[in-house]
Design a protein around this nucleic acid. Structure first.
Lengths: 192, 192
DNA sequence: CATATATATGCAACTAGTGGAATAAGGGAG
DNA sequence: CTCCCTTATTCCACTAGTTGCATATATATG
């Protein structure tokens, strides 16, 4: 239940409504932990029920009332406890790589299209991380160094993908594939 | 429902029982798509129900009977169709990076311990990918080139993590953190 | 002789996360 | 004036995946 902690991290910056947390997930923390608003509201209700945050309804003029959550000492304590637990690295999970294991059965032209598509996606994401990183580059405060480090993981990840996709496109070019299927001919053997 | 396709990829190599697929998930395809045997059996039952694979019970002496699944033409067609669909890159999801966003609230010594721990884990995984890659390095068959490419993603990923963790350990060393908290003093301001 | 391991399949209960709809009010574009 | 967007919250059905258990039997290890 890591979403719980991601929300506590968000609340540790200051009191926020579910809507605020959802918005922040879209633009910063969400780079590394995505969640839909339905799940965020649900989870924030649990934080309140478990005393990790307190909730207060704030009336607004012309807009629906906000329910503003404030992290409690117990919440802060839970966050600290969480950071002491041994954390397992995330697992590489990508159905595209699974496709590569079945490359003989699938459509290679589809793979090429997806490689091209991914190069664009990864370039875009890389640019996004670089932009966010630039906003922090001159800061040496602890909190900003933490964010810089996180963004650097993103930059490395996206960059490696761009590089790998480019290489994969070459290794799986129509010419290269034609050569490979000549070396190991199956159906073609009977055609000669 | 990508597990379905991962199983079809596994079956595209030849008929297999649930047990066989589970074993293969543990040692090759599972690098990029993990699943427990309970889920695999459940999903393979669905493949049979939907006509993507046929099942045949094979009696065995001294062991429980195996139920061997063979991919059907419809299954092969489904795989090909799947590879034509635009595939979105996987998302970077890591609660450790979320912790870095809340670095002022959490325990930095815990972060350091986790960085050291992760360096080991990533080195181990990197070694595993390199080993698997070496077994294929001289092959130029299409199927092995696909596997090589997939393993190369793993190698890049793990290597970048080792490098990043090492750098993060320096940037978050006790001395560096002491300097940062001196530059932006909060509670300390009143102590002077 | 007991225990562990490998083979082999499956169910039930649970957690996490998705997708969509409902409600409600104000503001801006056409 | 209508339509859509933004703000703001809640709820529900659904899918995917995990955990743990149950059931068998044969072989190897201690």
């Amino acid at each position: 239940m890591a979403l719980k902690y991601a929300i506590l991290v968000s609340l540790s910056e200051g009191p926020k409504s579910g809507y605020d947390v959802a918005k922040q997930f879209d633009e910063s923390i969400g780079f590394f932990w995505r969640a839909r608003h339905s799940q965020i509201y649900r989870e924030m209700g649990k934080l309140r029920d478990n005393g990790l945050a307190s909730a207060e309804e704030v009336p607004q003029l012309g807009k629906p009332n906000r329910i503003v959550f404030t992290i409690s000492d117990a919440g802060r304590q839970a966050l600290r406890q969480w950071s002491l637990e041994p954390s397992e690295p995330p697992e590489l999970k990508d159905h595209f790589l699974v496709q590569l294991y079945g490359i003989e059965t699938i459509d290679i032209e589809g793979v090429r299209q997806n490689l091209l598509r991914r190069i664009e996606r990864h370039q875009d994401r890389h640019a996004e991380y670089v932009m966010k990183h630039k906003l922090l580059e001159n800061s040496q405060s602890l909190s900003d160094v933490g964010k810089q480090l996180a963004l650097e993981v993103g930059m490395r990840w996206e960059w490696e993908w761009v590089d790998w996709c480019t290489q994969a496109l070459e290794r799986l070019s129509p010419e290269a594939v034609a050569k490979m299927t000549n070396i190991v001919p199956f159906e073609q053997a009977g055609d000669r």
